[in-house]
């Protein structure tokens, strides 16, 4: 066994080390670039031009190896969660129901609950806005149109999933924000963390931003 180990170590001669060094430097740069790109971006228009260029070089490698992450866990400011509620209607006499993502009444297995939670969080995160950006560079408008197209495709995919699963005749997706209460609200106002007033429907494609109460009566959770 030891002879096998020494023969493995013998491979690491100087030219091999130099070649591996070049590979290591490239790889480590590829690890650093995606989070650095995120750190140097404050909005779609406020980006570091330098990091954009560098990112372009490493993107194929980072994408292929699934290294394209910002690692900004609970940052910069943890706060509201974004939920997805689907209103399902039926033509067979069943009452309409609401399917919630995530379904806080069914948290087991926790990993599956979290997958559903991420579906809603990422769906909300991908929302590009309803109106085309005005007075924006052409490149940004093209990007918005593409994001919008993919978002609509994603929405259609989720609607199709729910339609097939529940046999619904009509499915409407709603995006909701759930903010945590402040300490004053919780300890002085005695507002629990799932109080209806902490939920707010966020802008939809109908362009209406409505404040609605949270959980209704007789709703069914699922997902």
């Amino acid at each position: 066994m030891n002879s096998r180990v020494s023969s493995e170590n013998d491979v690491w001669r100087l030219p091999v080390r130099r070649l591996v060094t070049a590979g290591l430097v490239f790889h480590l740069l590829a690890v650093v670039v995606p989070p650095l790109q995120l750190a140097t971006t404050s909005s779609p228009v406020m980006r570091s031009p330098f990091m954009d260029q560098v990112g372009w070089v490493f993107q194929p490698y980072d994408d292929a190896l699934f290294l394209n992450h910002g690692y900004a866990f609970f940052a910069p400011n943890p706060g509201s969660n974004f939920l997805l509620w689907a209103r399902l209607e039926f033509t067979d006499g069943r009452q309409p129901i609401i399917v919630r993502l995530p379904d806080t009444d069914q948290r087991f297995p926790r990993l599956m609950y979290h997958r559903h939670f991420m579906l809603s969080e990422h769906f909300n995160g991908a929302y590009p806005g309803y109106e085309e950006p005005v007075d924006a560079p052409a490149e940004l408008v093209v990007g918005w149109k593409r994001s919008r197209q993919i978002f609509k495709q994603r929405e259609a995919s989720m609607i199709r999933h729910l339609t097939e699963k529940y046999g619904a005749s009509r499915v409407t997706l709603e995006r909701w924000e759930h903010r945590p209460p402040s300490t004053i609200e919780m300890f002085q106002g005695r507002i629990p963390i799932d109080a209806p007033e902490l939920y707010r429907r966020v802008d939809s494609d109908r362009g209406n931003e409505r404040a609605k109460s949270g959980r209704g009566q007789g709703e069914v959770n699922g997902g």
């Binding site: 995120l38 750190a39 910002g70 690692y71 900004a72 866990f73 609970f74 940052a75 910069p76 400011n77 943890p78 706060g79 969660n81 939920l83 995530p102 806080t104 939670f117 759930h178 945590p180 209460p181 402040s182 300490t183 919780m186 963390i193 799932d194």
Partner: peptide, 23 residues
Amino acid sequence: LAKVRGESWWDGSAMWNVLANFE
């Protein structure tokens, strides 16, 4: 570094927002 950019990590409210996060 991403947390450093958020003021709530400096005044401690971030920790509350994490603990009081229902989901």
